[in-house]
C-alpha cells in the first residue's frame, strides 16, 4: 500500500547520488511550517550524511489553505529553468515567514536570476502543469498531508526524523 507513483525519474529535482541505497522523496508545500521544519532537518542530513542518501522534492501545494504556496512552487520551478531550483527552494524556506509575491521576486533578484525570463516562466502554463502533476501523483501515492515522505518508494508512516537510522554505514 501507499506506493510512490510514478517512481523517481530524470524529471524530478534530486540531490545526492543516483545509486544511493536510500532514496527519500518529500511531498512538500513552501508555505507549510512543518515542511520548513523538515527542510532544516534534511539540510542537516545532507551535511552530515552527504552521499549516503538521495533526496527528491515534489510539490504538494495546499493552495486553498496557503495563499502563496502555488506561486512559491512556480517560482522554484522557474528558477529551475535557470538551474537554480534548489537555491530557490532553500531561499523560500529560509524566508518562509515573510512569504508573499514580492518576496519571491526579491529572492529571484538575490539569486541573480535573469528576471525577465523568471517572470515569463512563472506564468508559463507548462510549469503549472508540472506542479499539478506532482500534486496528483502525490494524491495517487497516498499523500495525506504535508510533509509526506516516501523511502525507497514506500510511504514512511513513522516519525521521519528516524529515517537516518536506515542509512548505510
Amino acid at each position: 500500500m501507499a506506493t510512490l507513483t510514478p517512481a523517481v525519474s530524470s524529471q524530478d529535482h534530486t540531490l545526492g547520488p543516483k545509486d544511493a541505497a536510500i532514496e527519500i522523496v518529500e511531498y512538500g508545500d513552501f508555505q507549510c511550517p512543518f515542511c520548513r521544519e523538515a527542510y532544516y532537518i534534511i539540510k542537516q542530513w545532507l551535511d552530515e550524511y552527504e552521499n549516503r542518501f538521495r533526496f527528491v522534492f515534489r510539490h504538494f501545494p495546499l493552495t486553498e489553505a496557503h495563499e502563496y504556496a502555488l506561486d512559491a512552487a512556480l517560482s522554484a520551478e522557474a528558477a529551475g529553468r535557470q538551474n537554480r531550483f534548489w537555491d530557490m527552494h532553500d531561499a523560500i524556506y529560509d524566508d518562509q515567514p515573510a512569504l508573499n509575491d514580492g518576496l519571491l521576486v526579491r529572492l529571484a533578484k538575490t539569486l541573480d536570476l535573469d528576471l525577465h525570463k523568471f517572470s515569463e516562466d512563472v506564468e508559463d502554463k507548462s510549469l503549472l502543469i508540472r506542479v499539478n502533476d506532482d500534486f496528483e501523483s502525490g494524491v495517487r501515492s497516498g499523500v495525506n498531508g504535508t510533509p509526506t515522505f516516501f523511502v525507497n518508494g514506500k510511504r514512511y508512516n513513522g516519525d521521519y526524523k528516524d529515517i537516518p537510522s536506515m542509512f548505510p554505514r
Binding site: 495546499l62 486553498e64 489553505a65 500534486f135 498531508g145
Partner: peptide, 13 residues
Amino acid sequence: SDQMTLYNEMLKY
C-alpha cells in the same frame, strides 16, 4: 481537519 483540507484541494480532481 487535515483530511478535509486535503479534500478541499482535491475538488477540481
